[in-house]
Design a binder for these strands. Structure first.
Length: 872
RNA sequence: GCCCGAGUGGCGGAAUUGGUAGACGCAGCGGACUCAAAAUCCGCCGCCGUUAAAAGCGUGUCGGUUCGACUCCGACCUCGGGCACCA
């Protein structure tokens, strides 16, 4: 063993050993419990960032830990290779997305390998490979056959200058990112997947996901948003009938059917057919509807915009009283939600209340407050108005509780066929069409005679041409006759291939199944899925808590219902790592696009007034920039930290150790360059401790019964460390405290200056425990240390040790003494000391007596092994 | 706007089931070693106070429950994530 720690040599040797012995390539093995450890696959953006390092190190620690616990561990890796950034890069440098993406994959694979992850690289996949997306297309066609996939119109962001659909990310302050033109909403044909068919099951099964964080389950439940209510139909009044050209009803959904008699208006979306009908003869309404088309489709924008409305001049009839109710167009009602229409009950809904007040609509109180908070609803709004109570002013339905009123009203509506109870979900069907090039082609052919024709299975995959270069003005596939010109599979006539591609969430909705059988050439999945799945531990960013995880749960169920897999839930346990945050600095020159600067390039100094000033030195000189606060490390905000420099300078083990030590995995990690030194220093100290110990030659066997107090003490510390680390890693998934415990152990070893044979035996055991416990976290240096401790076998094949309960046994325990809950003293008592003796000792303690003085003791609370609290 | 989470020393964090607040590390300060520096090793390190101690204060803010609250409850503030075409 070398005297000095050379991270480059140590890491090279360990990685070469793992590679030569193919340590991490695994096969199905019925004799051992399997453990499928999966980290979310990365987007190949160019280089790894610290979020990747954190994510994959967490996965690797667990994979290596479970391997040492005797499991057959699968840890695969792949690339979420389709997506918008590749097109953006192409626009900037003229390089085709395929080339850019594959270069990035090669580079990032190298970076991952330098971090020493225990990955089975033989299963690597990239979602842009035709051999992968072939099965996206194949399953899409099966979904189409079953009606799970279908086509209808959808609303998108439209850049009127570039004549292009914009992603939400490309809309900045309501304007197109390249043209600066105000965006508009536009309806286009879109393929949808019928996820709402599974809404109830996806919601109900959340309860069984015991291995998922509570907050993710809550977020998913709220996202699905099941609500029980009534569908109510309001018949058209003669004016509406005339405008629509036929009779009909206006359908709404409400959870508050008990307030039906308080409805004083109807609000409909700008895109609602009745709005269009009314607009034909109403220029003011027509221009209001046009105004509603402005702006993006983002919910955050819609929810914060000023609530505006305009009357259509049309009316519908109250289903019970027959009273005409005016129909308004309102910008806060969305065509995509429910029926695109709501009934306005100003007295008992805050939004309707505000709308009625700004538009001088009547307010009718129809609920009597259960708490007596009000008699009649009047401004200003108070939350009690929205609470349920007894119905009043509601004709035959007055005097009923909430549930009784809803039941009675639903029954009465049912008799007239004007309403029924219904369950409504906030969840919407999943629109998967993207008007973009770098994605999986949707395998459809549009024929003028035959309509929408699926590409026959024999012609799959529809291969994406890889040489095109997008220029930002729309989908290059739609300008490429070589791609879209084709023959109709049904009639043989000339037809046009669909040029939309699939949402990249499709790619990531089933990749975890494919790893089990990555070499299956003729099928999407095979029986090996039955061995490896479900994923035992899934690790990824909290930002994926809703969409990716929900889509994967849905997709897995669809495949289950086609008998392709047997499971419903793909991920048994989930660890959502917190984001890695860093400061965001930007500069917005007048009339130009905002620029971002990496925190590493920003100098912070104090200005004349004491406030911090942020400066960047560029080719043009020194520039003062704005500090926008903390945000997740991202390419678009230019605040990533490149781990490569860290690895070169300190080694992969230091990078891994620091990332795991800096904060617990579920918490956000605020990046700081300081602290890396500490991790490096600790590894060197451990190296020197082992080196020095090994220099003295082999230690004699440990004689447990022949130890002195100091030797027993070090042994106890070592085994306590082992017990704590086992629990911290295996159960709590808190790596920072496991590392802290090993640091304490090393401090104790450093203080232990016993050179006697048994002293050396105890130290040897303690160093072995430290090495084994750290093996999952810093595997390279531990690989070398294990050899340094005299072993000829490889550490990676070693079993995780079990703490010796005899070594843990203690003779005395410290009892905390409190008076009125405040710490006043401590005493040491034998383990299993009689309660009466502890109480007496506590009351006799001089510190306790000082604070009790002559006051009568009212109570004495005793917590065994912990404390005595004297209450006066 | 809606849903979810977080807030503890100069900094990252610990306190696992309501029971010793600040483990471990970073930074800083003092010392040893050195011609010197780096590295390494030893010591100190919440605020206030004191010769030293004791006492007092202290986990975003305000209030509550409890013998006892970082932990539970209510209200609020700030920051972060998500909001369906970024991944």
């Amino acid at each position: 063993m070398q005297e000095n720690y050379d991270h480059a040599a140590v890491e090279r040797a360990a990685q070469e050993y793992w590679q030569e012995t193919r340590t991490f390539e695994v096969r199905e093995d019925a004799s051992r419990p399997k453990f499928y450890c999966l980290s979310m696959l990365p987007y190949p953006s160019g280089r790894l960032h610290m979020g990747h390092v954190r994510n994959y190190t967490i996965g690797d620690v667990l994979a290596r830990f479970m391997r040492m616990q005797g499991h057959n561990v699968l840890q695969p890796m792949g690339w979420d290779a389709f997506g918008l950034p590749a097109e953006n890069a192409a626009i900037t440098n003229g390089v085709p997305p395929a080339k850019w993406t594959r270069q990035n994959i090669a580079y990032m694979r190298g970076q991952m390998q330098s971090l020493g992850f225990a990955i089975d690289w033989s299963r690597e996949l990239a979602t842009c490979d035709p051999s992968y997306y072939h099965w996206n297309q194949w399953l899409f066609l099966r979904m189409l056959e079953r009606g799970i996939a279908y086509r209808k119109t959808g609303v998108v962001n439209w850049d009127p200058v570039d004549q292009t659909v914009l992603a939400n990310e490309q809309v900045i302050d309501g304007r197109g990112w390249r043209t600066g033109a105000p965006v508009e909403k536009r309806e286009i044909p879109t393929y949808y997947l019928n996820i709402t068919r599974y809404a109830d099951e996806l919601l109900g099964a959340l309860d069984e996901l015991r291995g998922w964080p509570e907050r993710v389950r809550v977020m998913q439940a709220n996202w699905i948003g099941r609500s029980e209510g009534c569908e109510i139909e309001f018949p058209y009044a003669p004016d509406a009938r005339a405008a629509a050209g036929a009779g009909g009803t206006l359908k709404v959904f409400t959870t508050r059917a008990d307030t039906l008699f308080g409805a004083t208006f109807m609000a409909i979306a700008a895109e609602h057919p009745l709005a269009s009908a009314a607009a034909k003869t109403n220029p003011a309404l027509s221009s209001f509807i046009a105004e509603c088309r402005r702006g993006s489709i983002m919910e955050a924008d819609l929810a914060t915009q000023e609530k505006k409305g305009m009357p259509t001049g049309l009316h519908v009839l109250h289903p019970f009283t027959g009273a005409p109710l005016p129909v308004w167009v309102a910008n806060y009602v969305l065509m995509g939600y429910g029926e695109g229409a709501v009934m306005g009950v100003p007295a008992h809904d805050e939004r309707d209340f505000e709308f009625a007040h700004s538009n001088a609509l009547p307010v009718v109180t129809v609920v009597r407050s259960a708490s007596g908070a009000y008699d009649e609803v009047r401004a200003p709004w108070i939350p009690a108005y929205a609470e349920v109570g007894l119905t009043v002013n509601s004709g035959a339905f007055s005097g009923l509780t909430f549930q009784a009123a809803v039941d009675a009203i639903a029954a009465a509506l049912g008799k007239q066929n004007l309403g029924r109870k219904r369950v409504h979900y906030r969840l919407r069907d999943w629109g998967i069409s993207r008007q973009r090039y770098w994605g999986c082609p949707i395998p459809i052919i549009h024929c003028e005679r035959c309509g929408q024709v699926p590409v026959p299975d024999s012609q799959l995959p529809v291969v994406l041409p890889e040489e095109l270069v997008p220029d930002g003005s729309g989908n290059p596939l739609a300008k490429s006759p070589a791609f879209y010109e084709c023959q109709c599979p049904q009639c043989g006539g000339s037809a046009r291939r669909e040029t939309d591609t699939m949402d990249t969430f499709v790619d990531s909705s089933w990749y975890f199944l494919r790893y089990a059988c990555a070499d299956a050439a003729r099928t999407m999945v095979d029986s090996r899925v039955g061995y490896w799945l479900p994923v035992d531990q899934y690790i990824g960013g909290i930002e994926h808590a809703i969409l990716h995880l929900l889509y994967s749960r849905f997709w897995t169920r669809v495949m289950r219902d086609m008998d392709l897999v047997k499971l419903s839930e793909p991920f048994a346990k989930l660890l959502t790592q917190g984001m890695v945050l860093n400061d965001i600095y930007s500069d917005q020159p007048a009339g130009a696009r905002k620029r971002y600067f990496n925190p590493a390039d920003v100098d912070v100094r104090r200005g004349a007034d004491g406030a911090e000033v942020y400066e960047v030195t560029t080719a043009e000189g020194t520039l003062t920039v704005q500090h926008e606060g903390l945000g997740k490390m991202s390419k678009s905000e230019g605040n990533g930290v490149d781990p490569e420099g860290l690895i070169e300078r300190f080694g992969a083990d230091t990078a891994r150790l620091f990332t795991m030590f800096a904060s617990p995995p579920e918490q956000t990690l605020e990046w700081s360059d300081e602290g890396v030194q500490g991790a490096s220093r600790f590894i060197k100290r451990l190296w020197h401790a082992v080196h020095e110990h090994a220099l003295a030659g082999a230690a004699p066997p440990l004689e447990r019964a022949a130890l002195n107090d100091a030797q027993r003490e070090l042994r106890r510390t070592a085994h306590q460390t082992l017990a704590k680390a086992t629990d911290d890693i295996g159960r709590r998934r808190n790596f920072n405290t496991a590392i802290a415990a090993v640091m304490e152990l090393l401090n104790a070893i450093g203080r232990f200056a016993d050179a006697s044979p048994q002293g050396r035996a105890v130290r040897h055991e303690a160093l072995e425990i430290a090495t084994l416990v750290l093996a999952p976290i810093t595997p390279h240096v531990c690989h070398a240390l294990w050899q340094g401790l005299g072993h000829t076998t490889a550490l990676v094949d070693e079993r995780w040790p079990v703490a010796d309960s005899q070594a843990l046994a203690q003779q005395a325990v410290e009892i905390v003494l409190q008076v009125n809950g405040k710490l006043r003293g401590r005493i040491s008592v034998p383990v299993n000391c009689d309660e009466a003796v502890v109480r007496a000792a506590a009351l006799a303690d001089e510190h306790v007596r000082k604070f009790v003085a002559d006051q009568p003791v009212r109570r004495v609370i005793y917590v065994p092994g912990k404390l005595v609290n004297v209450v006066v």
